[in-house]
């Protein structure tokens, strides 16, 4: 660790604080994107509270609860992957990242079964069955498909991001004293979890 002139060369400019702040700005744009939809939900739930309750009975609360736990657990493994890399345990970190992807895939499989069950009952956006119902129910299912659909899209993007992060860890691009990429990937993943924390009671737990 010489302080000689030569050592200056490998000191590339690095600003972890700036990188994270930038990530938070992006997360806020995501919150605005979903926030707009939550706003639409709030207004229509106020207008059609009885029909929202009626429509929500058709969602599978058990599967919703299961998926909530799966996503919360994936958030835990994500944060543990950062702790592992801080402690310079590369393989453990890779294991936790792989687990996070595993939980994300379980989430998507459950979502697939949920949506196919709805489709097989003729409930999908613009379906004849749905359009014959009252406005409140059409709105509920419209919001359900758009909001959980956009959320599921974020889960898929998250899987891709975490897979890329795994490659970085594997190639030692993310190491114990330089892991801001992993932290930012984690922030994205936790946001996905955060959105689900609100989607779950608003869609699955109305009685």
């Amino acid at each position: 660790m010489s302080q000689s002139n030569g050592a200056v060369v490998n000191q590339l400019h690095r600003d972890d604080l700036g990188a994270k702040l930038g990530m938070w700005v992006f997360l806020f744009t995501e919150v605005l994107l979903f926030g707009g939809m939550f706003l639409v939900y709030a207004v229509y739930r106020f207008q059609f509270s009885d029909l929202f309750k009626l429509a929500a009975l058709e969602l599978n609360t058990g599967l919703g609860t299961f998926n909530t736990i799966v996503l919360l657990t994936s958030s835990l493994t994500m944060v543990l992957a950062i702790v592992a890399i801080q402690k310079n345990k590369k393989n453990l970190s890779l294991f936790y990242l792989a687990s996070t992807i595993g939980f994300a895939l379980i989430f998507m499989v459950v979502k697939y079964f949920e949506w196919s069950a709805k489709f097989s009952h003729g409930i999908y956006p613009g379906s004849e069955e749905l359009l014959n119902r009252q406005n409140g129910e059409i709105l509920f299912f419209g919001l359900y498909f758009v909001m959980t659909g956009l959320h599921a899209f974020h889960v898929i993007i998250g899987v891709i991001i975490i897979a890329v992060l795994m490659v970085f860890v594997y190639k030692n691009k993310i190491v114990h004293d330089n892991y801001v990429k992993l932290e930012n990937g984690g922030l994205y993943w936790h946001l996905v979890d955060l959105i689900w924390i609100f989607l779950f009671p608003l869609f699955y737990l109305i009685h």
Binding site: M1, Q3, Q11, H13, R14, D15, D16, L17, G18, L72, T73, S75, L76, V79, L80, V83, Q86, K87, D177, N178, Y179, V180
Partner: peptide, 22 residues
Amino acid sequence: MEHVNTEHKTHSHGYGIYVLVW
């Protein structure tokens, strides 16, 4: 080992606190 730039003040927690939060 010294870094001149802004970077992590490693608040390294153990695994325990995160398991508790979970």
